Every structure is written in C-alpha cells, then in structure tokens.
Simulated assay, not measured.
Amino acid sequence: MFFSIIIPLYNRPQEIDELLSSLCFQTYQQFEVLVIDDGSAVPAKEIVEAYADKLDVHYHYKPNAGQGFARNFGFERAKGDYFVIFDSDCLIPEDYLEIVSSYLFTHQLDAYGGPDAAHESFTAVQKAISYGMTSVFTTGGIRGNKQHVGQFHPRSFNMGISAEVWRKTGGFILTRLGEDIEFSIRIHESGFKIGLIPGAKVFHKRRTSMLQFYKQIHFFGRARINIYKHFPAQLKPVHFFPALFTIGVGVLVLLNLFGAPLAHTGNVFLLVYFMLIFFHSLYLNHSFKVASLSIVSSFIQLTAYGLGFIQDFFKRLVFKQL
C-alpha cells in the first residue's frame, strides 16, 4: 500500500520542520508527503524543500481558504492508495505507517482515526493540555479510546481515508468549525467502514499557552452547534455536559458572593473534582508541575467548550442568526 500524507499549514514553519523531521525515520517507506501551505504570510517552502533528499515531499502554496479545503487540495494531487491527514503540530512515531499498514491489511477499513499523546519533549503546559483533552475527567477519555459513545468519528489531526472515499464523498465540504466530524458522518452515511487503530498514535502539541488553548476549545464548542445544523441527530446529551458544568460554576460563584448555604457543598464538590484531576495527572505524568497545570487545562477545556457551545446555541438555534 502506498500512502499520501497530507499536511495543511498556516504560518507555522517551525512545526512543519519538526513534523517532517519525525517522518524521516518511518520504518515503512512507501509514502509521499504533500505540504499544503494555505496562504501563509510566512511561507515554509525552503524548509520543506530542504527535506527533498530525505523524503518524497511536495510543497504547494495556495490562497487561504481554511484547513478543510487545503486538505481537499492535497487529495486532488495525491498519488496514494490511502490518504493520511496530520495537523502541522504533530510528531509522528517511527512505526506509525507500519502499524497502520498492518492493521488495514487485516481489518480493511475505508477510513480510520488514531489517538494522540504527549511526547516527553513537550513542555509542562503542553503535557497538561494533552491531559485536559484526553482525560476521563474532562472528555470522558473517549478520544483515541476503544470505548466511545455512538459512531467513532476520526479527528483530522490523525486521520486516514482510502482514495475511494475521496472519490465518492468529494472530501471536506466545511473548511472549519467541525469539518472533520461532518466529513466522518458523511463517510459513515456513504456506507464505508470506519474504525479506530489504537496503536496509530501521534504526539500532538496542540497549543503552547493556556490562552491559545482556551481560544481553540471555545472554537470547538461552537463547532458542535455547526455540526448540529448539518446533522441534528448528532447532538447528544453528553455534548451538553461542558455547558452545564460552566453554568454550574457560574451559579457557584454567585452562591459564594451571597453567602448561600449551598455554596459550601458546591465548593467541596469542585475541590474533590480538582483533587481527582491532580492525582490522576500526577500518576500519569509523574510531575507535580504538570499535575497542577492539568487542573487549569481541565477547567479551561470544560468552560471554554461550554461557553462556545452556549454562545452559538443561542445565536444560531434560539435567535436563528447565521
């Protein structure tokens, strides 16, 4: 099987350098790399072309249109039997393609997704953010896990599709705001088989600061409403949990301000919740600093998503604005 690795890029030259460097060590060598520079103000052509003697790599620059359409641009030019999508802020383990090719040979998936994890070289903030995105106490631990609610929807930081899926579906029809989940739903509805490849993990940097992380997760909360506009049945009770948590925190603040008796119970509950996060992260990361920051990242993960969800719930569903 020949793979086409497609990476949309926007103003992140350092990230693409690190990603391409990690791809040089793949134990499975039947692949090409297409870097789609989506109108960056800081083009990465020289960085990408420096790998021409190590990788079958192709650099394409196009006007900015968002990551979904940048991936379509790559699909149109890919030669592979199977297309693999990475975000530019990922590092790829050397056995990634070998694991994927072996799994696809025995399971014959039309599309797949894989988990993400924190690399040992990541900063404490990045490790805490990774915890916030994958913990059982925040997202339910279902990202990249065998156990998940309903259909499995691959995420575009680590996703693969067969060339046939591309030909039949036409790729992404959204370029932002939940474009990968919308695409996954259409792949399901087209009759293709989608699955998780548990061993096909990537090291996902995500954001380098808590403020950047907040903005990203707020965007994800809004994206859930955008997906609902296309597929109403995909809005599940579990998607309301961050919004309910956020409202609960707001109510707790008011209870404390007015000295209400219920405030004590709420404070104890929140303290216990944060202590569970701290000790769970400490067990996983073996770092008091990462464990402490995991409380912050987990709180941001829930409240940022909740606020984004609430914002577009009222804006687009209640007040019917575009």
Rank of each mutant, 00 (worst) to 15 (best):
D116S: 06
R71C: 03
A50Y: 06
L177W: 14
S22L: 00
N256Q: 08
H286Y: 09
A52H: 03
I47D: 03
V149H: 10
A163V: 09
Q26H: 04
A111T: 09
P13H: 10
K54E: 04
V251I: 07
F279W: 15
I277K: 06
H264W: 10
F219Q: 13
G306A: 05
S102T: 09
G132I: 05
E18G: 00
D180T: 12
L104P: 02
S162R: 02
P154S: 09
D38P: 03
Y131L: 07
I161M: 03
W166C: 01
G250E: 03
N11A: 03
G171W: 12
L282C: 12
I295C: 06
E189A: 09
C24P: 00
V249M: 06
F319P: 11
T27H: 05
A233D: 15
I185F: 04
F231T: 04
Y112K: 05
S156I: 13
Q126A: 01
F3W: 04
I129F: 02
H218K: 13
P242F: 10
V165Y: 04
Q321H: 10
G150I: 05
Q151K: 15
I277R: 04
N158E: 05
I92L: 00
L177H: 07
Y283F: 10
K205W: 01
L177K: 08
E32Y: 07
L262K: 15
Y283H: 13
F240S: 10
R176N: 04
V33R: 00
